[in-house]
Design a protein around this nucleic acid. Structure first.
Lengths: 352, 352
DNA sequence: AAGGACAACACAAACGTTTGTGTAATTTTT
DNA sequence: AAAAATTACACAAACGTTTGTGTTGTCCTT
């Protein structure tokens, strides 16, 4: 006996429905129906089949079933990054509902690059996913790849970051309202010269946050000079840097509303280093309710986006659409939640 | 013309390799080879095929290919939760390497429940994933489901949370060393009565952290009373609660090393509320380098686990193993990184 | 007791690829 | 120039299911 030879007692070929059929002198169709509890097979036979399947450790082949059925029981999710609190929250929500409905989820991260986004749409289409849930990348200014997916008739649902021009189901939070409320809150707390860190205007979320900011300022008759809106890439470093430049140019605001928590944090740290008292001399609010925001000093006022719920709704929307038959695109708008924390509480307490 | 009828100009049937073959009066095999740049088809024919494929918007069917090839170009990832900094970091790393190697990744979250873990292993086996990367749930004390996967011969690699008894590839960080270093650092900074928040002993990571803690204490001749090791579920609330109970029982340590950042935070907040100065009167260190740890006041000393790298290595290990042919299980141990921050700096500065 | 209804199963085709093999025609070798 | 090798393609089977359609036999109906 030559050692190293594959042992013949365990032919690695996985057992198939055909094998079961052969053993029981029946046919694959009967096995299939029995295993899936479809009618058309007697209870005695059914039991024998299930018993044998268990005994032989039969493992259904979802790939084969998928091919035959023309569906994969899989949904594809495209996000810029998986390790951001917001997106990982959405993914958590998606996975939950998917699990409850026997769907698997394939995740794709674009790193905010349109090219990867394109490739991933292609991959998902090839994989014959039953639906695509996506939040577009920062770079995405052309939607041909998504239109292609739509043309194939597979449910496509966008969340949070949404292409403006497409007629498609979407779920977003009311960024405008969220921003408006934050800024209103800040104004009511006595801040006047409130600047804004903004993201690119072509992304709905950032545009809307900016609009909300502008509307609130206008409502209270506060002027917004051009230099009070700073576009940067919303990272911690960018926030710090932008703040520094403002001060260097002798522009001294008394508050900041940032479209991102990270940039808000950068600015906050910088101002603290410069000796400003927060929130007494400088108020700061962010957006997204990243986890760290409630633990820093002072805790950061921000807006919660209900990421997990967004993921859940998103998947439920997919479940509704998957039936086919062209339902008109639906639009869900979640209400953001203003989380007032210490960083914007310019109260007497803080001045003493 | 009855409105509402499906327009016949767009028969929704996706175009297949057969359709292309029929049009070009050739055969599916030639189309297949041409499209995948396999040899055996002339350059003129190849060009015509590719042109037609593009023109007709041919979309390869990965499911069919998967069935035929017996592989899915997909890897399954099982984690307790996707929206934890550590795990989402690992997932990010996995996705990156997977992407570079044309693999898709299916994610599954167990919510720390063994039952879900079982189901997901089953699902992944059915989906004929080419490999499984997993971090076991808190509840997992039986590994039959994973053994079954191994028996099928598909690469199985564990990361971070690893079943003790299985002969299988794994990648972990040296929790022992990480814990030892933290505690040593705390002792050298003058802390003496250092307590420990521990997770369940049957999980390698928590057991090792506890061992590291004990070893450091012992090395410096510091006694560890039984009540100095507190087992809790390592959440923020648990940390707060455990701390409260200690004080209620008149046990007053001068420092805490927690196996989790969240529990450390809970304790830290509680002690601050009680008026203790941190790090002057009470030192705190956590584990995992959650994002918030560097932004709180004082910034929290912790241990970074290189989550992204872990994900990358994990996937690379899979790539090595997928060739088949029973490579002996490999073990990679990453070095943790001690991040000394203010919460454990019992310096003069803090006493003044 | 003849007819229909129904249950339990068998039969066969199909899903869209990939790949081993067969077969001409062309090119290379000697 | 004949033999050998190579190229370019066609042919056909296979991957493991699911599902529509037959084919029996049994049970009920009247």
């Amino acid at each position: 006996m030559a050692p190293g030879k594959k042992r013949p007692d365990n032919m690695n070929k996985p057992v198939t429905i055909k094998d079961l059929a052969a053993i029981l002198h029946t046919t694959p169709s009967t096995i299939s129906r029995a295993l899936r509890d479809k009618e058309g097979v007697g209870s005695e036979m059914r039991n024998r089949i299930k018993a044998l399947a268990k005994k032989m450790d039969y493992q259904p082949n979802a790939v084969a079933a998928g091919l035959r059925k023309g569906k994969s029981d899989t949904i594809g999710v495209i996000v810029p990054r998986v390790n951001r609190d917001f997106f990982s929250g959405v993914i958590a929500g998606i996975e939950e509902v998917a699990y409850e409905n026997q769907y698997s989820v394939i995740i794709c991260q674009t790193h905010d690059q349109i090219e990867r986004e394109r490739e991933y749409v292609e991959t998902l289409l090839s994989a014959r996913v039953d639906g695509i849930l996506a939040s577009i990348s920062l770079e995405t200014n052309n939607y041909d790849h998504f239109k292609k997916a739509m043309k194939k008739g597979i449910p496509l649902i966008f969340f949070d970051r949404i292409p403006g021009e497409m007629k498609v189901s979407r779920i977003e939070i009311d960024d405008y309202k969220g921003a408006f409320r934050v800024v209103q809150h800040m104004i009511e707390n006595g801040y006047r010269k409130i600047i804004h860190f903004a993201g690119p205007d072509y992304l709905n979320v950032y545009r809307n946050r900016k609009e909300g900011y502008l509307a609130a300022m206008q409502k209270y008759g506060l002027p917004v000079e051009k230099e009070m809106i700073i576009y940067n890439n919303l990272t911690l470093e960018a926030g710090r840097e932008s703040m520094k430049q403002l001060l260097d140019n002798d522009i001294v605001p008394d508050a900041l509303f940032s479209a991102s928590d990270y940039a808000a944090l950068g600015a906050l740290l910088f101002m603290q280093e410069k000796g400003y008292h927060i929130p007494g001399e400088f108020g700061v609010a962010g957006f997204s309710n990243e986890k760290f925001t409630s633990y820093i000093t002072p805790p950061l006022t921000t807006v919660d986006q209900h990421s997990r719920e967004m993921g859940r709704y998103c998947t439920e929307l997919f479940l509704k659409e998957r039936s086919g038959d062209k339902i008109p695109p639906e639009k869900i708008v979640l209400s953001p939640e203003l989380l007032i924390r210490q960083s914007t509480q310019k109260t007497d307490k803080n001045f003493n």
